[in-house]
Design a protein around this nucleic acid. Sequence first.
DNA 1: GCTTGACCTGTTATGATATTACATACATAG
DNA 2: CTATGTATGTAATATCATAACAGGTCAAGC
Lengths: 174, 174
Amino acid sequence: MPTPAPHNPATCPGCAAPDLAFAAHDHAHCAADALARAHAITAASGARLTPVRRRVLEILLEDHRALGAYDVLARLAADGFGNQPPVAYRALEFLVEQGLAHRIQRLNAFTACAHPGEAHAPAFLICRSCHSVAEAEAAPARDALAHDAARLGFTIERTTIEALGLCPACKDQA
Amino acid sequence: MPTPAPHNPATCPGCAAPDLAFAAHDHAHCAADALARAHAITAASGARLTPVRRRVLEILLEDHRALGAYDVLARLAADGFGNQPPVAYRALEFLVEQGLAHRIQRLNAFTACAHPGEAHAPAFLICRSCHSVAEAEAAPARDALAHDAARLGFTIERTTIEALGLCPACKDQA
DNA sequence: GCTTGACCTGTTATGATATTACATACATAG
DNA sequence: CTATGTATGTAATATCATAACAGGTCAAGC
Ligand SMILES: [Zn+2]
Ligand SMILES: [Zn+2]
Ligand SMILES: [Zn+2]
Ligand SMILES: [Zn+2]
């Protein structure tokens, strides 16, 4: 599996609008763009964006929220795809591997990537009220951890950073 | 439920030996000390360290690893306690509330706290090979995230920071 | 001492999340 | 056209977690 292209902030829609998930925006364009990028990325890497995989990505792209595997599965089944768990889990795994989606540990759920194909492991800001998910820069937090880890002789391979709280819209409501 | 006492590094065994989980040490003393502190903490707060709860804490204290709820349950059942999931989950929930244990999201598992009663939400260094868990300082990483969150108008309430990797011992083996 | 009420424990049942194993279909290279 | 690798479908099962209720324990207040 080829590695995705390096991150280029100039062409990354997620970087251009970091508050995407929490702000009003032209989401139809946002989703269409992500889907187009997904086609380009998979074509470039030789991976196959098959109908099930593409449909799962479309479902995740419907909004900036996280969906459980069984929610995705129900949608797939309604569209005539298989309705056994592996159908959803395999497509989701593929998307995560390709950098087109992320898994949110805290929610046992998945969300479309806002910086598609950039081979990143972002931090997540998760609204506990509306389940919106925004991606934030994880590097500073990871660096802070690395110091402690080095002192203990621990080698960090992957880091999960997830913040639960309230997004601006839900805060206003309360 | 009264809030635990603030963190006092001078009296905190976890702070005195931050590499506890990954280094050879007098673990019998380490566990006995934690258990004694647990008695003191719960007595002070009026919470009841009942036989099941105490036994669960003892089980978690057997080493610096994370155990699943069903692993704990099997041990409880072998000791003559109830063998239905709520028995384990309730005791674990109690220990987490009291600051005597932590939940590791990444593993769906629980580990005894190395800084008992200090009302903290640490970062975790998790060995993917032996499942040892060390607690690290989460404040710097949290602070790094807070900047991004503030920019987006997101209010952080809780943060999960977990690093997966290899501990010194497992690294040497490989 | 008895009643009452809070809390803890046990148990049944079920729900939610995830994987293994195997069969079938399909694309593409040779 | 056939062999090969990859993707999908399906059944069965494993793993993690909670709801709902029944019964027991214990101490406060009468
Ligand atoms: Zn959008
Ligand atoms: Zn992303
Ligand atoms: Zn120890
Ligand atoms: Zn701790």
